[in-house]
Nucleic acid binder design. Structure first.
Lengths: 323, 323
DNA sequence: CCAGATACCGCAACCGGTTGCAAAAAGTAT
DNA sequence: ATACTTTTTGCAACCGGTTGCGGTATCTGG
């Protein structure tokens, strides 16, 4: 049915190996034969069969991208960037969604493992031990989590947290709260560590919470009880949920409580009040992670740790402490 | 390196063909040999090589899923459902994002075509002619668009629109507006057709608009100018943008203008005011579309058209007309 | 006890590329 | 013109499964 390399070989009067090389090892074939072969191939509409190629080379030209939840607006920009970058390198991306479940995450990696050349693990909830074990089976690049000896792309939330806390204390807030994320989240731990390290601030930790609007909604009672007037949420979704919940209780943001999110997702830019947030360079992370992964696939060189900058974007959900 | 079918054959004292059949044609091998082979395989950690299998069978066991924009909350539930369903059938899903660009959409299909057994096309912006041409190369299932002779999954927006219009007129709104979507959108046309068919309502059409919050924001001026007090937006994102924009102009929703969205995405459920919306059965659509696709891949039977129900969910963004 | 059907299994070709090796062709130096 | 390189191409094995065909063992009925 489909046109194969042998059809092209026959039509252009050379051996199949020459056709093969015309595509995958141009320097090994005479330029004039090469152009002729390519022309014939184009003419016949030849497209190399990836499965066949994968069989001999051991490269599927696919990569896996594992995220906790596609529905979280944090991920789509990262996914898009990763896909675009992969496509540039003639790779395709399997996106898989773990529903925030470490169990599912591990299974997914297992089944993906044999059909991809490498896996991008975004904010994994797995234990380090598990990740290191899985690592034997397929190259990884980890995003938003530090795992010993693994190529990693990190976003410097610590810095963002420091900026956020300074912003809040600068506005006169004395009692702060950090609405933390899921218990397995590296980012959440980083945020706690960064906040705890700031001796000038009095911050209580509230959590763990689901990294969604519902998680924010659920944290409202604790936030109010904490007496904090400045709140840093695990992410924008949580912040939005929190603001909603506070509004329902008649608490004004930023009038009574200031709220800061993390991620700078689009809904946060358009919500009311517009969300003050720590911007994460998600697209850059996706792009770089793919480069790192494909780099470590081709050469055995395991990349190090890349840290991307974050920044604080001040909008309308934070204001002066009133007292 | 990896353990192959031959390793298993040797270790269990049978021929490779028997091992192969133990997996893919159980009824052709003696139950006791089969269990033994399976045990040995399990023991050795054997995993069949999909590329090799694909080479002989011509089935990659991958499907493509093409959406306009992963970042649109409408899609994730559909994607998740499709992936889950595909996984049940031992298939994997390539998700691709066209950035709302028909050009990109076509290229994507072209490159995907050779490495998947079928493609799910969600709300395609391509012309019918192009789709029918591409159809020669790979089986399709189209979601949210009617293309002659193609297996299709539709959501009955028409009904949703009728319910929405009735809801608005029932609240006393006389002048209505429909904020339409992108020009290539089948859903948008359906909505217009359904609205136009309701002779009792006076509805003006505003658009086309980008199917995002920004699109809604941009439509604010027109909406105000139209004098409508009841507005149906192309989707929830547009509705949210619209409400934001109206708020900025000091127009209260639902006090002065009632707004209805489409899709019932999570942000709409949590926004203020909570969005009245037409709920779309996206997860069901994803599931069914995959079944249809895999059905038409296995047997040549081209499925027909499946229509899924929609419903109106009344929340807080609609209210009595004040006059 | 035997012909014929049935169940199970092995053989080997094949899918469509890739690649090490060697032969042939072309180029260079002597 | 000869011997030696270098470039270009062909040959054939191989990747890891699948599957049509045929052989052997077991079972059936008469």
């Amino acid at each position: 049915m489909a046109v194969t390399i042998r059809d092209v070989a026959e039509a252009s009067g050379v051996h199949v190996s020459t056709v093969s090389r015309a595509f995958s090892a141009p320097h090994l074939v005479n330029p004039v034969t090469r152009t002729r072969v390519l022309a014939v191939a184009e003419d016949l509409g030849y497209r190399p069969n990836r499965a066949a190629r994968a069989l001999t080379t051991g490269r599927t030209h696919n990569i896996g991208l594992i995220v906790a939840d596609i529905a979280n607006p944090f991920f789509p920009p990262l996914i898009k960037a990763a896909q675009a970058q992969a496509r540039l390198r003639d790779y395709h991306v399997f996106v898989a969604d773990t529903d925030e479940d470490p169990q599912v995450e591990e299974e997914l990696i297992q089944t993906l493992t044999k059909q991809v050349d490498g896996v991008l693990l975004c904010s994994p909830r797995l234990t380090n031990k598990t990740i290191e074990r899985l690592r034997e089976e397929v190259p990884f690049v980890v995003v938003n989590r530090r795992v010993k000896g693994m190529p990693t792309v990190l976003m410097d939330v610590g810095r963002g947290v420091r900026l956020a806390v300074e912003h809040l204390t600068g506005l006169g807030h004395r009692r702060l709260a950090l609405v933390t994320g899921p218990s397995g989240s590296w980012t959440s731990k980083e945020m706690q560590a960064a906040a705890a390290a700031m001796s000038e601030a009095d911050v209580t930790f509230l959590g763990p919470n689901a990294p969604t609007e519902l998680g924010g909604l659920a944290a409202v009672t604790d936030v109010i009880a904490s007496g904090a007037t400045g709140v840093l949420a695990y992410n924008d979704l949580v912040a939005i949920g929190l603001i909603e919940g506070l509004a329902e209780r008649g608490v004004d943001v930023p009038g009574e409580i200031s709220v800061i999110g993390v991620d700078d997702i689009v809904p946060g830019r358009l919500s009311r009040p517009k969300l003050t947030t720590i911007a994460m360079p998600t697209a850059a992370a996706g792009r770089i992670a793919v480069d790192l992964l494909l780099g470590s696939v081709d050469s055995e060189a395991a990349g190090g740790v890349t840290v991307l900058e974050t920044s604080l974007i001040v909008r309308d959900s934070t204001g002066e402490a009133n007292s």
